[in-house]
Write a protein that binds this DNA or RNA. Structure first.
Lengths: 316, 316
DNA sequence: TTGAAAGCGCTAACAT
DNA sequence: ATGTTAGCGCTTTCAA
């Protein structure tokens, strides 16, 4: 059991505790000799720094938060967030930070969410927030509290840092794959509103159109429910979002035609048991999480050259 | 922005900061007058205690951790953990604790998991751990580090506190429901090994058998893959675990007979799109999370009469 | 019931 | 390159 403090380490090494602190924090102005001596004692005694003391003295929490909406059942029924979380977790802990989940739904009928509470109380040094949760209100809240944050998913806001998977490229690759399989009449399932509102959908539309155009094929975008009554069904479908996939599955229940293969941007073990063949492209969600965490840590550390946004390509 | 300290509050109120601290921590020996005076100042100035200082002085972290296995893709493809997490989150934050996710898979190819790291460094006051992750190794680790913990799911270990949904009762209710619908030949999908190893499966078997017996019906337990070739298919099936449900879906693909209705213990929006009709009973997972968190907090506080285990009934 | 005072373990000037 | 010295904001004896 290691209840050693820097003071004791300093005594053993015969130096001042400030020196120990410097070594531990990777200061440059330390002689090789003292550094080695101290590091050895640290290892030998299995020293573990006291986070609370460090936090108090430096007025930093060494913790980042991830904004989460538990009430969105549809969202968390798919592995999206788990993949992202995993990536975040890895990067965060590798950097000796702690990692909090902050939900945005009200607790106890008070009007405060844990997200607000944690930000207001400065219990994190930075926040990771999914694009869908960066409402005007949350945005203002973060800004007002001078809380560093990085958005998971491309954001339309000016001056906001975000990390996203390259949806256009993924859509293009997915479309290419279908074309390569001999499909010509490929319809993208999407609604106009979504194409405007959700950037990831817009990006997917763009990638799809690019691939189709390159092969001299006509792009066709349709709503799931309007596809049932056509006489010559398309060769394949692409669901622009999980929502559209579900809508199509619903619509297809009452359809007369044969099952049309669908391509999607997310994966789930149940897909293979559906009456409709679903094939997916594997988005690098975990990587996105890692990159987002890395970027946030840079922002927290005040790294000057932190990029404003990052696109993570899909595996093709 | 509230950067007020107890010292300043004390000055405003004209008392000592120790008095303020006492009020804030709900000490008994405080006159109504001073208490009111101080509480009003606290409210008015929107005082927020400094967690780090409190943690340092009291050598408690006011944080609990949840043990999680990101590598178990099948597990997190279902909403189980999200439901549980939501319940935990609510209770934890309502008690002004923080809530950490600790993964049990290795980071950086070092042999330490974040779980081990966090526990070793005492960065949490207690741990919530799913039964499936309470291996001998993890168990020893927690004990060796004198870390309070509560298990999510019934545990066979002596002296271990756990909270579980009442699987026997849920299975009984589910079976009753099928019988009520006119089913007589109801087969439970389960494997003998699971019935021994996984307590939740054993409990479900028990509940199923109880209901069948009560109605004078014969219990029948079978493996999914051995059910395809029977000549008179059963009226209904009950999947004893998500695993068995998936196995059955797989087996049924090649089966000749008509789709047999399946009852399951978990839910997913995709179930309604499967060729097999799946109906579910709604386990009170969120409630289980809440109860587990509540129990852990009691254990941390050293509450004497904390129960050793809790069963949460399903909605019927 | 309240006050005084000594830390908790660490960081960060400021010296040397 | 290293030592000295104040704190960071809170809890917790011990007195009064």
């Amino acid at each position: 059991m290691s209840r050693l403090t820097i003071k004791e380490i300093a005594e053993i090494a015969g130096v001042n505790k400030a020196t120990v602190s410097r070594v531990l924090n990777g200061s440059v102005n330390i002689s090789e000799k003292t550094r080695n001596k101290i590091m050895e004692i640290v290892r030998e005694h299995n020293y573990v720094p006291n986070t609370a003391a460090r936090a108090l003295a430096s007025s930093r929490t060494y913790t980042v938060g991830f904004c989460f909406d538990y009430t969105n059942r549809q969202a968390y029924a798919n592995p999206f967030f788990n993949e992202v979380l995993r990536g975040i977790e890895e990067e965060i802990y590798a950097n000796d930070y702690l990692f909090l989940l902050m939900s945005v739904h009200d607790i106890d009928k008070s009007e405060t969410t844990t997200f607000q509470k944690i930000v207001r109380e400065h219990r994190v040094d930075g926040v990771l927030i999914p694009e869908s949760l960066l409402t005007e209100e949350h945005y203002r809240f973060l800004i007002d509290h001078a809380m560093p944050f990085v958005v998971i998913g491309e954001s339309p806001r000016e001056g906001v840092r975000w990390v996203d998977v390259d949806n256009a490229q993924a859509a293009e690759a997915l479309t290419e794959r279908l074309i390569g399989q001999g499909c010509k009449d490929i319809v993208l399932l999407a609604s106009p509103e979504q194409g405007h509102k959700d950037i990831y959908v817009a990006n997917r539309i763009r990638g799809y159109a690019a691939a189709m155009t390159r092969h001299g094929l006509p792009s066709r975008i349709a709503e799931p429910d309007r596809l049932g009554q056509e006489d010559s069904p398309p060769h394949a479908l692409i669901a622009s979002s999980q929502e559209k996939l579900y809508e199509w599955l619903e619509a297809e229940k009452t359809a007369a035609h044969q099952a049309i293969p669908v391509a999607a941007f997310d994966e789930h073990p149940l897909y293979r048991h559906l009456p409709t063949p679903v094939e997916s492209i594997s988005l690098q969600l975990e990587r996105m999480g890692t990159q987002a965490a890395k970027l946030l840590l840079q922002v927290i550390d005040g790294t000057e050259d932190a990029p404003s946004h990052i696109n993570v390509r899909a595996r093709t």
